[in-house]
Write a protein that binds this DNA or RNA. Structure first.
Lengths: 223, 223
DNA sequence: CGTAACTTGCTGGCTGACAAGCAAGTGGAG
DNA sequence: CTCCACTTGCTTGTCAGCCAGCAAGTTACG
């Protein structure tokens, strides 16, 4: 009974509160979906009042868009960083592919909320929104990055597209279904060895699908 | 002004109406999600009144469970039929795998609503429900079927698990992301050639991951 | 065959719960 | 004093579930 204040009342800080609301909204949208999450819940989770999310983001939909944009921006940075690293290494493309698989698996495992948000978005969200242009931007960037990293000739474009599609499928899917299908199969996704085993498995699968390594004239030697 | 009846008023048929409600609910739950679908919408889509879904299924959650159970039951039948067919054929396992991939891709393409329902369920649904035991049953059956079809030795259990996980990932994922990621990559999922190309690609990937074909003593020769 | 008694598919009004958004209010910091 | 961060009261709307009722169809009975 020393204080009447229900909470310790830290100093006011719009930037920090805004971030807290974004974090809370990201978690709730990812866990429950857009329609099943209320602004009041988001406020409570962020440690603020019912009305604060609306104060910062006007409407629930704008808050949702802000969450998605922040997530996509982070993903874009990660893709770009991986691309730069892969290109600088100058390793043979088998190793580059192995590294890309490893990076991607790690990224997915480290960002379960992001993966769930994307998946919900792909399902058409709970309400139908206009598409998010940033999503396509990240997709394009990832496609370009992988194609460049692996030095795909233009002739094998169809192969490259399917390879990328497979890479994404193989990395995302187990994460999304970690608690359902993966366990039903008999795999423990929380086991220490799981991620390593998965990386080896995915790399082995994809290596077999690389087109013949004829380093054609399309190889870029800029700089 | 010949009749006062607003609709042609077909004869009453509880079984048919029940099915219509189930169909409407399946479509809406798959498209919009549980929380974003209302009983009134479901009724309207089924061509009945607001109260009819509740009349047949008591609550919205019970209706949802009925939808899921019907879907899983159909999936289970499909898995069993494919298993029987594969075992009877007596082909080498490479061909069996190719057939399984083809069947699975076709099934997924023919049941987009089912795939979406499963995906939403894996995301934790919009509200948290208890898990559906029928889902695990289908999973178990599919695992057993594939292992048996391909005559996996017990020693390669981990390989078999990851192979199945990859098969499911490679078939489901492009269907789920047909309108988002797949198009972003530059593939047209509605093209005639898409399914065939995808089948070949997936088969090629998975064939490379089959363990050595030592037909060990664990080979079942029952009957 | 005919009609009254009864069952059952199906409807629509009602209610309480809850949520989004708004706007007035509060209180701390410069 | 005055912004600005943040809260709280209120309005409006939606939705699930309940329930009384109606009418299509069925059985009992003359």
């Amino acid at each position: 009974m020393a204080t009447l204040r229900p909470a310790p009342r830290r100093t006011r800080d719009a930037e920090r509160t805004r971030t807290q609301v974004l974090d809370a909204a990201e978690a709730l949208f990812a866990e429950r979906g857009f329609a099943a999450s209320s602004m009041a819940e988001i406020g409570a989770r962020a440690g603020v009042s019912r009305g604060t999310p609306g104060y910062f983001f006007r409407t629930k939909e704008l808050l949702y868009r802000a969450v998605m944009e922040r997530s996509f921006a982070e993903a874009l940075e990660t893709v770009r960083a991986g691309r730069v690293r892969a290109l600088r290494s100058g390793r043979p493309r088998a190793e580059v592919l192995e590294g890309a698989v490893s990076d991607y698996v790690d990224f997915v495992a480290a960002h379960p909320l992001f993966i769930r948000l994307i998946q919900r978005e792909a399902l058409g969200a709970d309400d139908a929104f206009g598409d998010l242009p940033l999503g396509r931007a990240v997709g394009d960037e990832a496609v370009a990055a992988l194609a460049q990293e692996l030095g795909f000739p233009t002739g094998a474009r169809a192969e490259a597209q399917h390879l990328l599609l497979s890479l994404v499928a193989l990395t995302w899917f187990p994460q999304l279904h970690a608690d359902t299908l993966v366990r039903a199969i008999g795999i423990d996704p929380s086991a220490k060895r799981f991620l390593a085993t998965r990386k080896r498995h995915i790399t082995a699968l994809l290596l077999g699908a690389l087109p013949a390594p004829h380093r054609s004239s399309s190889r870029r030697s800029r700089r």
